[in-house]
Structures are given as C-alpha cells and as structure tokens.
Amino acid sequence: MSKIEDYIKTKAPGSLYGEWAKKEECWNAIKNQDFNIDMESLKVDLENKLSVKRKRITEDEVENQLIQAEVDFIKSIPIAKWLEISKIGSEIEGMTQHLKDRAINIQSSLRLNKILSEHQRRDAIKIIENILENSPNFFDEDFETSNKIINQSNEEINPELILKMVEWDTKAKVLSAKELQYIADFGYGLKTLNDFHEKNIRRHLSRLKDAGFKV
C-alpha cells in the first residue's frame, strides 16, 4: 500500500493526487506496474481455511464504547465549569434557557456522582459543542480536572497525528466542517492544546477510528 501511495503521489498529473487516484486511468497505470512485491512474504497475513476467526464487534458494542467515551469526556470537565456555563450561557449565541437549566441539572448529577441519563448525556454534548462553536476560548484556560479519567487510547495527541486525522477526514467526511476546522487549528499550531482539548480530540479520534481511520 505504501508503494502504491508513493506511485500515485509522484505520478499524478496535478497536485490533487487524491482525485487522480479515483480515475480509471490511474488504476490502469497501477495494474501495469511491477512494484517488486514479494507475495510469498505476505502469505502469513492472508486468511485461509485454517485462519483463526477474528472477533467481530457488534454495532451495540461500538455504540456502548462511544457512549462511555462521551460520559468520560463530560466528567473530565470540572463541576465548577458546569456552574460557570449555567451563568454565562445567555452570553453565548444558541444557548437557550433550557440548555442553561440542563447545565445546572448535569452538574448536580455529577456532584452527587449519579449516573447520567441518556437525555443528560446528549444535552451535555450539545452544550459543549455549542460552546466550542460560539465561544471557542471558553475551554482554552488551563485547569485541573476534578474527575480523572483513563484514556481509552494510548496514542500521543500531537500535531502530526492531528494533521493525519484532518487529511483522512477531508475525504471520509465523518466530522462536520466545524469539527474538522476545530482539530485542524491544533494541527497547524493556531491553538494550544490543554487537557480539555486533548480529550475532545481523542473523542473525535475514536469516531474516526470506528469509521476506519488507522493511526
């Protein structure tokens, strides 16, 4: 795959090699190339009748993992921040009185260590995304999270990985345009990562991985 990628990038007639890669002429050219690949060396990785069946993750398992990632993400925000959201909500475009009230309700459940309901979880994500869209600097300040969580992935969140995410999703279009711009700002060094933003990017990374993105 790496040899084919290099070939496409170097032989593309223009800078948009991704577009050329979709065309029949590109694949005809590839079929006529000898990439000096030793197929014998790949046999061990190919499936056959004796291969161990790989465990398939059900849609419910994927959904449960995504829900848990969102819950962990919500809990990573200090309770004090939720109180602040309920106070400044009217200053943020799109923050209705209902969402302000929900912020109070959510922080109350978090303070009492209650399990968030599905409605609370959905509202919490809606509130966070609304703030990131309309008041992106709200979470820029450094703060110590009162609820420590274990990251589900061990990947180091750095500009190189973020730019790889941006490049992949430009074609896959899993993220919305605003979500893609959000992570791109960190990849290009326009914004500085802190604990909150790193967890948010990990949440987006999890979505991309579920859609087929490979780190």
Rank of each mutant, 00 (worst) to 15 (best):
S41P: 00
G14S: 15
K55N: 11
K199H: 13
E91W: 03
E70W: 00
N154F: 01
Y188T: 15
P78V: 00
I150C: 01
A103W: 01
E198R: 15
G89D: 01
I79Y: 02
K81D: 05
I162V: 11
L83I: 09
M1C: 08
K31H: 08
N64G: 01
H204M: 13
V215Y: 03
A211N: 08
K173G: 06
I131Q: 04
A21D: 08
K11V: 14
Q68Y: 06
E141L: 11
D142Y: 06
R56F: 07
L163D: 04
P136Y: 05
K49F: 09
V44S: 10
K53C: 05
K171E: 13
S109T: 08
M95R: 01
H98E: 09
N113Q: 15
N105H: 10
V52F: 07
S51T: 15
H119I: 13
E179D: 14
S41C: 05
A124F: 02
Q181P: 00
V52G: 06
R102H: 07
T170V: 09
D6H: 13
K126E: 10
N36G: 13
I183E: 06
E70M: 07
W27T: 10
D210T: 15
N48I: 07
R111V: 07
Q120P: 03
S146T: 15
K87S: 13
N194R: 10
I157Q: 03
E167W: 00
S109W: 00
K100G: 11
S15V: 15
E5K: 15
N134Q: 12
E61F: 09
I77H: 03
I67N: 07
A211R: 06
V52E: 04
K199L: 10
A69H: 05
T96C: 06
P13T: 12
L175P: 02
N154Y: 00
K214L: 09
K23Q: 15
N113C: 11
L190N: 15
E141M: 09
W82T: 04
E156M: 08
N28L: 14
V52T: 12
L161W: 04
A69I: 02
G187P: 01
V215D: 01
D6C: 10
I183Y: 02
I74W: 01
Q107L: 04
L50D: 12
A124L: 05
K22C: 14
E5I: 15
S109V: 00
K53R: 11
N154S: 12
L208V: 06
